[in-house]
């Protein structure tokens, strides 16, 4: 895998600026006036109660949805990105074919695809399942396959939308380890979760959303020890916030 680590590691990733970002659906503002800047290759965890706009923020930042207000702006060359969803979307093919497909889309020469896909499967502990149909794998295996697919795309910025919300502890551990691996490879990470413990384990910094608004964007340590807003404090105490 080391050879893959070396392939694409330009010094820095262009900062991502969200500028007055808003999204209104049928007259209902779901996200409003959100401005923030992500730089370096930190792990940023997006926290907040259900319906706070976490998934929406991910989709807007990744470019899956056009914002109705404001802009998503990369300060420089738009980096390669990938996204891992809450429910992995896998094609109706074998695990291996799912990976070679992503490589084909990515423009990898045909001859190298199988080798790279094999390596990624091994790396994510799926080597024995290469020829199984992806859709019959367990939830944890499917998510690992989705991570392996993202790994092969060599993203500089990785979005993860509650990737562990439907998984058992062992599978959660595998996902968190993968996030750490991505981080070591120099990938900037934006990940949403509603699991505070997970956020404590992974976060370098935290974005706290509530009711479609950005309430805090601060280093993890400060957020967890001294939240600036009463909503965040209540959220951290485990109270119901909305």
């Amino acid at each position: 895998m080391n050879d893959m680590l070396q392939v694409h590691t330009p010094a820095s990733i262009a900062p991502l600026e969200l500028d007055g970002l808003g999204f209104t659906h049928r007259g209902q503002p779901l996200l409003s006036d959100l401005s923030l800047r992500l730089d370096g290759c930190r792990r940023t965890l997006v926290l907040g109660p259900n319906g706070a706009g976490k998934s929406l923020l991910m989709r807007l930042a990744h470019g899956l949805l056009p914002p109705t207000h404001g802009r998503v702006r990369w300060q420089g060359e738009v980096p390669r990105q990938a996204m891992v969803f809450q429910r992995p979307v896998l094609l109706k093919r074998s695990a291996l074919a799912n990976l070679t497909y992503a490589l084909a889309v990515h423009g990898t020469p045909r001859l190298r695809r199988r080798t790279l896909a094999r390596q990624a499967l091994e790396r994510f502990g799926l080597g024995a399942l290469a020829h199984r149909p992806a859709r019959v794998l367990s939830g944890g295996e499917q998510q690992r396959l989705a991570l392996a697919r993202a790994w092969l795309l060599e993203p500089r910025m990785l979005f993860l939308d509650e990737p562990t919300s439907a998984l058992d502890p062992a599978a959660i551990k595998a996902v968190e380890d993968a996030v750490t691996d991505f981080h070591w490879r120099g990938t900037r990470i934006l990940m949403s979760t509603h699991d505070l413990h997970q956020a404590r384990r992974l976060a370098d910094e935290v974005i706290f959303l509530c009711g479609g608004r950005l309430l805090e964007h601060s280093p993890a340590e400060r957020f967890f020890t001294a939240p600036a807003t009463p909503q965040a404090a209540a959220f951290l105490r485990g109270e119901l916030v909305w």
């Binding site: 989709r59 899956l64 990105q81 996204m83 094609l91 992503a102 889309v105």
Partner: peptide, 27 residues
């Protein structure tokens, strides 16, 4: 509807989605 976000995330244009979707709907 099911594949849309993943395929867009992979950077596929709609034109390139056609063979993928046809193949996955083959049955």
């Amino acid at each position: 509807l099911e594949y849309r976000e993943q395929l867009r995330s992979l950077g596929l244009s709609r034109l390139r989605m056609i063979p993928t979707l046809l193949w996955d709907a083959r049955l």
